[in-house]
């Protein structure tokens, strides 16, 4: 125990994260908190014509930074999940050991692992460089990450399909793609749908992060308030709006997923299931 403590102190010293940095950080945190409270909810009431002059809704609320940013985040998450799922499903059938020859599944698994190596934030940075600032970079970054992540979940679900339907199909002399399409995917459909909904949920949360590097969505507005103006009260308001949106999406997703999750005891989800571990 003492050895571990000494090692921790030495490591911290080597990283130069000792007392002065911590005390400076503490002071900064207090400044940020004092400036962030109370949150400024004008981000929900003021028209953000500086960001989106084309917004022609009559109510300021619909053209506010929070609503525009949220809608953009949801749109990015939706498109990324849709494109990601469409591309990842064929790749998952190629990666599943029970549906593909070893050479093909090994190759596809490596491709999917490669896509997962970089977090969506780094993909977003790369695409901001390639296609410029805006939602397109966000959609492309999140799509790539979705393919890698969802593809892994999907090939694991496909490998979990019982061998009997596949053997009955193989005995008929059907080809591997036909077996995948007509036997394996329908048999795993509940898990696959549940995973896509989970991925949408995940993309909404991460859609705000990729915005910080200029890839669109509510994160872009956060970054806008932080970087030049240090308007932490508005950032906090945006975070609160995002938090409630994610909670609502979690709950809706949970309700839909419950319909597809195979369980002996399917019960109606409650709000507390969003916050507490489920028994």
């Amino acid at each position: 125990m003492a050895g571990l403590a000494i090692l921790a102190v030495l490591t911290a010293e080597h990283l130069q994260i000792g007392g002065p940095s911590l005390s400076r950080g503490w002071e900064n945190l207090l400044i940020i908190l004092s400036e962030a409270f109370p949150p400024d909810f004008s981000v929900l009431t003021n028209r953000a014509s500086w960001a989106n002059p084309a917004c022609n809704f009559e109510t300021d609320f619909m053209c506010s930074p929070a609503v525009i940013g949220l809608i953009q985040t949801l749109e990015i998450a939706f498109l990324a999940t849709l494109f990601g799922a469409l591309i990842s499903l064929p790749l998952a059938t190629m990666a599943a050991h029970n549906l593909s020859p070893l050479w093909l599944s090994t190759m596809t698994r490596n491709l999917l692992a490669g896509l997962r190596v970089l977090p969506s934030l780094i993909w977003a940075l790369l695409f901001v460089i390639v296609v410029g600032i805006g939602p397109l970079a966000g959609v492309l970054a999140m799509t790539l990450y979705t393919i890698g992540y969802l593809g892994k979940l999907q090939y694991e679900a496909l490998e979990g399909v019982g061998k009997h339907p596949l053997e009955a199909a193989r005995a008929m002399g059907l080809s591997r793609p036909v077996i995948a399409r007509y036997f394996a995917i329908p048999e795993a459909s509940n898990s696959l749908i549940s995973q896509i909904l989970f991925m949408f949920e995940y993309n909404v949360r991460h859609g705000s992060v990729v915005g910080l590097v200029g890839a669109g969505g509510i994160g872009w507005y956060m970054q806008y308030y932080i970087a030049p103006f240090k308007l932490y009260d508005r950032v906090l308001a945006l975070l609160i709006v995002l938090y409630f949106t994610v909670v609502v999406i979690d709950f809706i997703s949970l309700r839909i997923r419950r319909r597809f999750i195979e369980s002996e005891e399917i019960r109606k989800p409650r709000w507390r299931d969003v916050f507490l571990p489920q028994r």
Binding site: G162, H164, P165, L166, E167, A168, A169, A171, M172, G173, L174, Y182, F183, P186, E187, S189, N190
Partner: peptide, 19 residues
């Protein structure tokens, strides 16, 4: 063997349960 010339009903039947 030609496609479809062999039929196999496994012990657990090999049906697609969600269909």
């Amino acid at each position: 063997a030609p496609r479809g010339s062999i039929g196999y009903i496994p012990q657990r039947l090999g049906l697609v349960h969600h269909q």
